[in-house]
Amino acid sequence: MKVFKRVLGSLSLALSTAVFWLPIYYFVIGAFKKRTDIVKFPLVVRPEMISFDNYAYAIKKMKLFQALGNTGFITLVSLAMVVLFGSLAGFAIARINHRGFRIYYSSIIALMVIPFIGALIPLVVLIKNMGLYGSLWGNVLIQAAWNLPFSVFLYTGFMRTLPKELEEAAYIDGCSTFGVYLRIFLPLLKPVTATCLIRAGIGIWNDYLVSASILNNVRKPTLMVAIYAFFGQYVSEYGYAFAGIIMASLPIIALFALLQKYFIKGLVAGAIKG
């Protein structure tokens, strides 16, 4: 009876996981198939069905390399800002004992609550007034700003757990505060930086709203905007769309595969502490 229950439990888990993965299986095999095969044999793939035509077409249609360049630039530059500025602020808040820093911390953390789309309208007006409309830099600055509160939260939390003796010796040896940040703390921040990178990176890479609102979608497409090329009122060529979304998602999936451990850590920390 007990063995039977166990087998049943494992079986239902495996089965439900298979159903859950059906959409992914469907679009991954679909990306290699012609439209007629996708419609007629949605769940089957045979060697003679496989072709790379969808990819060749999608690369051209969504201007893949241009879009990849734009998304890559936005993600890399804004992540650099999120990590650098966030760790500097976190260091000040966590290691310098003054009431002002604690008040500052609470106000920065409160910003995590605000939904981006709530501030979207004035943001677009602001970007236009700053002359950044249509520029990747506008996108970079917005992404950096909106990801900084969580980054400050992560870095502050992490640096608060480090022992006080850490910097004392360095100060006695005449090291400056910036030197302490640079030489003592920065090397210790690898795990929390990984958490920060993967968490913010997924959000920035996958962003649609910022890019769609402030960039010229034809001249400066990002990946998530470019995949809309396959999504007119009549989606006819499923294979193109599938190939397009796979290529647009692969880099961030690879990053996730690399940093998964840290991502889960950050997720749990964020949920427990705020």
Partner: peptide
Amino acid sequence: FLVPTTLLCILFIIVP
């Protein structure tokens, strides 16, 4: 150390 974070957050979150 707080200056860059503060500037970005004021300009792109609080002002909007």
